[in-house]
Design a protein around this nucleic acid. Sequence first.
DNA 1: CCCGATATTGGATACGTTTTCATGCATCTC
DNA 2: GAGATGCATGAAAACGTATCCAATATCGGG
Lengths: 332, 332
Amino acid sequence: MNMRRTTIKDVAGAAGVGVATVSRVLSGGSASPETRERVLTVAAQLDYRPSALGRNLRQRRSGGIGLLLPDITDTFYGRVADGVLACARSAGEPVIVGTTGDDPEREAELIGMLLEQGVDRVIAIPSGDGDGWAPTLRAGVITVFAHRLSAGRDDIPAVVADDRAGVGTAVDYLTGLGHRRIAYLGGPGQQQRLSAFRQALGPLVDEDLIVVARGSRDSAYAAAAGLFQHRPDLTAVLAGGNLLGEAAVLAARELDLRIPRDLSLIMFDDVPWAELCSPPLTVIAQPARDIGYRAAELVLRGGTRRPRGVLLPTELIVRGSCAARGTSRSPR
Amino acid sequence: MNMRRTTIKDVAGAAGVGVATVSRVLSGGSASPETRERVLTVAAQLDYRPSALGRNLRQRRSGGIGLLLPDITDTFYGRVADGVLACARSAGEPVIVGTTGDDPEREAELIGMLLEQGVDRVIAIPSGDGDGWAPTLRAGVITVFAHRLSAGRDDIPAVVADDRAGVGTAVDYLTGLGHRRIAYLGGPGQQQRLSAFRQALGPLVDEDLIVVARGSRDSAYAAAAGLFQHRPDLTAVLAGGNLLGEAAVLAARELDLRIPRDLSLIMFDDVPWAELCSPPLTVIAQPARDIGYRAAELVLRGGTRRPRGVLLPTELIVRGSCAARGTSRSPR
DNA sequence: CCCGATATTGGATACGTTTTCATGCATCTC
DNA sequence: GAGATGCATGAAAACGTATCCAATATCGGG
């Protein structure tokens, strides 16, 4: 029952060599062909697995990569995580995952946990304004942001979708359809998109039509419903995330606003159900999985280069949730 | 730049005590009030964080918990993961996540990785027939299955939803509506549900109406489309997962089958988009998050008791995707 | 044939922690 | 007051590995 696990010493003994030799053979160091073969044979026979514990302690790094995201339940973040896991797996690296709930405090807590674990590489979708990340930098942890860039942190490379362009094409599309009162329904950490939205809309921008919810479903729904109730004159909404999009659809339905007749909707991120919705949702697709994968690549390559981050393209996928707004207002 | 991290030895030196005392103070051992306070003060001043590396090596266990699931992209598994993470976080334990893609080989590979990491607790949604789990048991790793139980493994406790009951009520509901030709659209690892389906249907069962897809979206769609094409006489479908349900909706739409007029659909698992779909989908809700949470509880409590697993209730949520099937067949 | 260079090898050390054990000291009991 | 008991404490060992370093074996050139 309580069998001691086979160590490198056992292998060394059984193969009649020193532990140093075994270690070298297994780490790809130099050794004579015959010793190498003998060691490998014995190791296989004993079903020896080098203990990451010993190795990590010796080289003072856990070798794992930490992944911090707001909510693993959200398909989008799930896809980012999937990309990270795929890349990490091909590199043989374990991934420690934590969810921040978009709470900087919780994020800091998790950062502490990762540091304690000796993780030396972290990928994060950052929550706060980025000053919670001083500890990782100080500890020499290679850090890469994904999906969002953090306000005050230009010293951390980030892999993000081209939000600016995405918002731009979406707004152009809507204005091209004749919309003038366009609302933005945002979530946490979307400064980029917000500024892009304001810029794209130019003189048309109406600050009252910009609403920012917290991360939760309830908050998103409340924000959407409040927006629709207070401003029945708006004709189009840009939802900055699939949770917000979902909330918009539900709130619209609740208030008897028909999409797209009464309200045009564009949602950030192409999720599977966008096509199932009625009407199918026009979306700004983001390469979620690629974001994760590229971030993992970056973090695995090491912080030597300074690629200053990666910008991935977005794509407007037109389905059925936007309608033209003629000069004649539908009286409703 | 290359600062050595502060160790317990530094704290001991600065506080004028031995390392053993520091360790005791920090692990809640006995110490005189004054020394305790001094050590804590110094530790705080130096911003000392005990290294999990050293501790893990010493007690020969990483203290982390491993989580293996088929696909982190799937909302359902995401919710299970969320439950696990929540419980693990409250216990301060890191979680190493891996995705198996429902591939036993890949699963075995990941198990190896977890063992190498010295993980001593694993939660898994198992992929294969369960003989890939011999290594963890042999290594004394506390293992708990979630969501599925593995064929040959009755020595591993499992936390699962009451599939049998869920299938039963769904089938009863459909037969109550007059349906006779009911299909089952299944995925990997659903022996439980399949047998429950056969049993609930009794003499009505038609083996040709039972289709099992692999885990992917494509495979699910192919299975659904194939089923609908080959058997236009079926009137109801039970989809054993949200991926399958999605595929069923898409395939039905493609083949111009109207839900629920031409085809009634019940889907396993209540996902957010079930309500957004048109018509809203009738589902069998499973407590996904609870499954994860309870599994984590089980695995954290340790393998001492033998609770033989946990069975969580399911609930049929009736929405709009099922219609009564009168005695008169709609001629179509 | 000898010497220097090179390749291979194993002993020893260090990584940071927990835990055992022995020691010293104060208090308690009879 | 002497022995017993308890507590706080620190030295040291161990966990499993990678790597430094010295020692040995092998080889080539002169």
